[in-house]
Amino acid sequence: MKKLVLIAIGLLFTLTVAAQNGLKEGTKAPSFTAKDNTGKSISLNQLLKSHKAVVLFFYRGQWCPYCNLHIKQLQDSLQLLTAKGAYVVGVTPETGENINKTIEKTHASFSMIQDKGYKIMDAYDVKFVMDEGLVTKYKGYGVDLNKNNGNSDHVLPVPATYIIDHTGKITFVHFDKDYKKRASVASLLKHL
Protein backbone atom coordinates (compact mmCIF):
# COMPACT_ATOMS: atom_id res chain seq x y z
CA MET A 1 0.00 0.00 0.00
CA LYS A 2 2.81 2.42 0.92
CA LYS A 3 4.48 1.72 -2.43
CA LEU A 4 1.23 2.49 -4.26
CA VAL A 5 0.94 5.79 -2.36
CA LEU A 6 4.49 6.76 -3.32
CA ILE A 7 3.79 5.91 -6.97
CA ALA A 8 0.68 8.12 -6.90
CA ILE A 9 2.63 10.99 -5.35
CA GLY A 10 5.37 10.50 -7.94
CA LEU A 11 2.92 10.69 -10.81
CA LEU A 12 1.35 13.86 -9.41
CA PHE A 13 4.81 15.36 -8.82
CA THR A 14 5.89 14.58 -12.39
CA LEU A 15 2.77 16.21 -13.84
CA THR A 16 3.22 19.28 -11.63
CA VAL A 17 6.83 20.04 -12.65
CA ALA A 18 6.31 19.92 -16.40
CA ALA A 19 7.54 23.51 -16.93
CA GLN A 20 10.98 23.18 -15.33
CA ASN A 21 13.94 22.27 -17.52
CA GLY A 22 16.98 22.89 -15.34
CA LEU A 23 20.23 24.25 -16.71
CA LYS A 24 22.20 22.41 -19.38
CA GLU A 25 25.77 21.16 -19.53
CA GLY A 26 28.13 23.82 -20.85
CA THR A 27 26.11 26.66 -19.30
CA LYS A 28 27.78 29.19 -17.02
CA ALA A 29 26.59 28.39 -13.50
CA PRO A 30 24.70 31.23 -11.80
CA SER A 31 26.71 32.52 -8.87
CA PHE A 32 25.22 32.69 -5.39
CA THR A 33 26.16 33.54 -1.84
CA ALA A 34 24.23 32.17 1.13
CA LYS A 35 24.70 31.00 4.72
CA ASP A 36 24.88 27.26 5.29
CA ASN A 37 23.52 25.28 8.23
CA THR A 38 26.55 26.19 10.36
CA GLY A 39 26.29 29.93 9.65
CA LYS A 40 29.24 29.84 7.24
CA SER A 41 28.99 32.11 4.20
CA ILE A 42 29.03 29.98 1.06
CA SER A 43 29.94 31.75 -2.17
CA LEU A 44 30.06 29.70 -5.37
CA ASN A 45 32.76 32.01 -6.77
CA GLN A 46 34.92 31.59 -3.65
CA LEU A 47 34.44 27.81 -3.61
CA LEU A 48 35.55 27.59 -7.23
CA LYS A 49 38.76 29.47 -6.40
CA SER A 50 39.73 26.89 -3.78
CA HIS A 51 38.26 23.67 -5.26
CA LYS A 52 38.38 21.93 -8.62
CA ALA A 53 34.60 21.62 -8.67
CA VAL A 54 31.37 22.06 -6.73
CA VAL A 55 28.73 19.36 -6.56
CA LEU A 56 25.50 21.31 -6.11
CA PHE A 57 22.33 19.34 -5.43
CA PHE A 58 18.77 20.27 -4.61
CA TYR A 59 16.61 18.29 -2.22
CA ARG A 60 12.99 18.52 -1.10
CA GLY A 61 13.17 17.99 2.65
CA GLN A 62 13.84 15.76 5.64
CA TRP A 63 10.46 14.09 5.11
CA CYS A 64 11.52 12.69 1.70
CA PRO A 65 13.02 9.19 1.94
CA TYR A 66 14.61 9.50 -1.52
CA CYS A 67 16.32 12.75 -0.52
CA ASN A 68 17.62 11.20 2.69
CA LEU A 69 18.97 8.17 0.84
CA HIS A 70 20.72 10.37 -1.73
CA ILE A 71 22.24 12.61 0.96
CA LYS A 72 23.42 9.56 2.91
CA GLN A 73 25.05 8.16 -0.25
CA LEU A 74 26.83 11.48 -0.81
CA GLN A 75 27.98 11.50 2.81
CA ASP A 76 29.17 7.89 2.65
CA SER A 77 31.25 8.77 -0.43
CA LEU A 78 32.31 12.24 0.65
CA GLN A 79 35.99 11.30 0.94
CA LEU A 80 35.96 10.03 -2.65
CA LEU A 81 34.32 13.23 -3.87
CA THR A 82 36.63 15.55 -1.93
CA ALA A 83 39.67 13.54 -3.05
CA LYS A 84 38.75 14.65 -6.58
CA GLY A 85 38.72 18.28 -5.41
CA ALA A 86 34.94 18.66 -5.07
CA TYR A 87 33.02 20.68 -2.50
CA VAL A 88 29.49 19.37 -1.89
CA VAL A 89 26.55 21.74 -1.26
CA GLY A 90 22.88 20.88 -0.73
CA VAL A 91 20.10 23.41 -1.33
CA THR A 92 16.58 23.11 0.07
CA PRO A 93 13.54 25.21 0.91
CA GLU A 94 13.19 23.58 4.36
CA THR A 95 13.77 25.55 7.58
CA GLY A 96 17.04 25.43 9.50
CA GLU A 97 15.36 23.24 12.13
CA ASN A 98 14.39 20.74 9.44
CA ILE A 99 17.84 20.91 7.84
CA ASN A 100 19.12 19.80 11.24
CA LYS A 101 16.66 16.87 11.13
CA THR A 102 18.03 15.96 7.69
CA ILE A 103 21.55 16.04 9.10
CA GLU A 104 20.51 13.84 12.04
CA LYS A 105 18.97 11.29 9.66
CA THR A 106 21.81 11.28 7.12
CA HIS A 107 24.89 12.34 9.15
CA ALA A 108 25.68 14.84 6.38
CA SER A 109 28.80 16.86 7.15
CA PHE A 110 28.78 19.06 4.06
CA SER A 111 27.13 22.45 3.61
CA MET A 112 23.33 22.63 3.49
CA ILE A 113 21.66 25.89 2.47
CA GLN A 114 18.11 27.03 3.16
CA ASP A 115 17.07 28.80 -0.04
CA LYS A 116 14.56 31.06 1.72
CA GLY A 117 13.74 33.37 -1.19
CA TYR A 118 14.25 30.60 -3.79
CA LYS A 119 16.94 32.63 -5.56
CA ILE A 120 19.19 29.62 -6.10
CA MET A 121 16.32 27.33 -7.17
CA ASP A 122 15.07 30.03 -9.58
CA ALA A 123 18.55 30.59 -11.02
CA TYR A 124 19.02 26.86 -11.70
CA ASP A 125 15.43 26.49 -13.02
CA VAL A 126 14.48 23.75 -10.54
CA LYS A 127 11.76 25.55 -8.52
CA PHE A 128 8.12 24.62 -8.84
CA VAL A 129 5.00 25.53 -6.89
CA MET A 130 2.74 22.65 -5.93
CA ASP A 131 -0.95 23.04 -6.69
CA GLU A 132 -3.47 22.83 -3.84
CA GLY A 133 -4.56 19.32 -4.80
CA LEU A 134 -1.03 17.98 -4.44
CA VAL A 135 -0.50 19.91 -1.20
CA THR A 136 -3.65 18.29 0.19
CA LYS A 137 -2.45 14.83 -0.92
CA TYR A 138 0.93 15.39 0.77
CA LYS A 139 -0.84 16.48 3.97
CA GLY A 140 -2.87 13.27 3.82
CA TYR A 141 0.44 11.37 3.90
CA GLY A 142 1.72 13.40 6.85
CA VAL A 143 3.86 15.91 4.91
CA ASP A 144 3.08 19.48 6.01
CA LEU A 145 5.06 21.75 3.72
CA ASN A 146 3.91 24.88 5.57
CA LYS A 147 5.56 23.59 8.74
CA ASN A 148 8.55 22.03 6.97
CA ASN A 149 9.41 25.13 4.93
CA GLY A 150 8.15 27.75 7.38
CA ASN A 151 5.80 29.39 4.86
CA SER A 152 2.72 28.74 2.75
CA ASP A 153 4.37 29.01 -0.69
CA HIS A 154 4.32 25.23 -1.34
CA VAL A 155 7.60 25.46 -3.25
CA LEU A 156 9.84 22.45 -3.84
CA PRO A 157 12.82 21.88 -6.12
CA VAL A 158 13.17 19.23 -8.77
CA PRO A 159 15.89 17.14 -7.07
CA ALA A 160 18.64 18.02 -9.55
CA THR A 161 22.43 17.71 -9.26
CA TYR A 162 25.05 19.83 -11.03
CA ILE A 163 28.83 19.62 -11.19
CA ILE A 164 30.38 23.03 -11.71
CA ASP A 165 34.06 23.14 -12.70
CA HIS A 166 36.65 25.68 -11.50
CA THR A 167 35.85 27.96 -14.47
CA GLY A 168 32.20 28.18 -13.41
CA LYS A 169 30.93 26.00 -16.23
CA ILE A 170 28.36 23.26 -15.61
CA THR A 171 30.02 20.01 -16.69
CA PHE A 172 27.43 17.49 -15.46
CA VAL A 173 23.67 17.65 -15.00
CA HIS A 174 21.28 15.17 -13.49
CA PHE A 175 17.80 16.65 -13.90
CA ASP A 176 14.91 14.21 -13.77
CA LYS A 177 11.37 15.24 -12.93
CA ASP A 178 10.86 11.81 -11.35
CA TYR A 179 11.84 12.59 -7.74
CA LYS A 180 12.90 8.97 -7.17
CA LYS A 181 15.79 9.22 -9.64
CA ARG A 182 19.00 10.82 -8.38
CA ALA A 183 22.56 11.19 -9.62
CA SER A 184 24.63 8.20 -8.55
CA VAL A 185 27.91 8.75 -6.78
CA ALA A 186 29.59 6.68 -9.52
CA SER A 187 28.37 9.11 -12.20
CA LEU A 188 29.53 12.09 -10.13
CA LEU A 189 32.98 10.57 -9.64
CA LYS A 190 33.20 9.81 -13.36
CA HIS A 191 32.57 13.46 -14.22
CA LEU A 192 34.84 15.04 -11.61
Score class of each variant (00 low, 15 high):
A160T: 03
K137E: 04
I71D: 01
I99Q: 05
N68H: 09
V158C: 04
I71L: 13
E94A: 10
E104G: 02
I71R: 05
Q79K: 10
C67F: 07
D76P: 10
K105V: 09
T136L: 05
Y66S: 08
S109V: 10
H70L: 06
Y138I: 05
L156Y: 06
T95K: 06
Y124S: 08
S109F: 03
L69S: 13
Y59W: 12
S152Q: 12
R60V: 11
K105R: 08
L56H: 05
G150E: 12
L145W: 06
S50G: 15
C64S: 14
S111P: 02
V54F: 10
G142P: 08
A86M: 11
K101E: 04
T92W: 09
N149R: 14
K84E: 09
V88P: 03
K116T: 15
G96R: 06
T161C: 15
S77V: 05
A86L: 12
N151W: 07
I103R: 01
Y138L: 12
D131E: 06
T92S: 09
L80P: 07
V129P: 14
Y162K: 01
T102Y: 00
Q73N: 14
A123W: 11
T92E: 03
K139G: 01
G61W: 15
H154G: 03
L134E: 02
L80I: 06
I99V: 13
D125V: 08
D122E: 05
H51P: 13
L80H: 14
E97C: 10
Y138R: 15
Y141Q: 04
H70K: 07
L145M: 03
E104I: 09
Q75R: 09
F57G: 03
D131C: 00
L80W: 00
K127E: 11
N146D: 08
G117L: 13
L56A: 10
H107Y: 04
L80F: 13
E132K: 00
N68C: 10
L56K: 05
F57D: 00
L74F: 03
G85P: 13
K52H: 07
E104M: 07
P93Q: 15
N98R: 12
M130K: 00
G90L: 01
Y59R: 11
S77D: 09
G133L: 00
T82S: 07
N149F: 13
I113Y: 02
T106R: 03
P65K: 15
L134D: 04
G133M: 00
K116H: 12
N148E: 15
L80R: 13
S50Q: 09
E132D: 07
I99R: 04
Y124E: 10
K84N: 02
A53Y: 08
K116N: 08
D153C: 05
L81D: 06
K127N: 09
G140A: 12
N149T: 04
H154L: 01
K105D: 01
L156D: 06
V88F: 03
S111G: 00
Y124W: 02
K139F: 11
P157I: 02
K139H: 04
L56N: 07
L78K: 12
G90W: 04
L134W: 02
D125M: 07
K137D: 11
Y141D: 13
A123L: 06
Y118L: 10
G140M: 06
S111V: 00
T161W: 03
G133A: 01
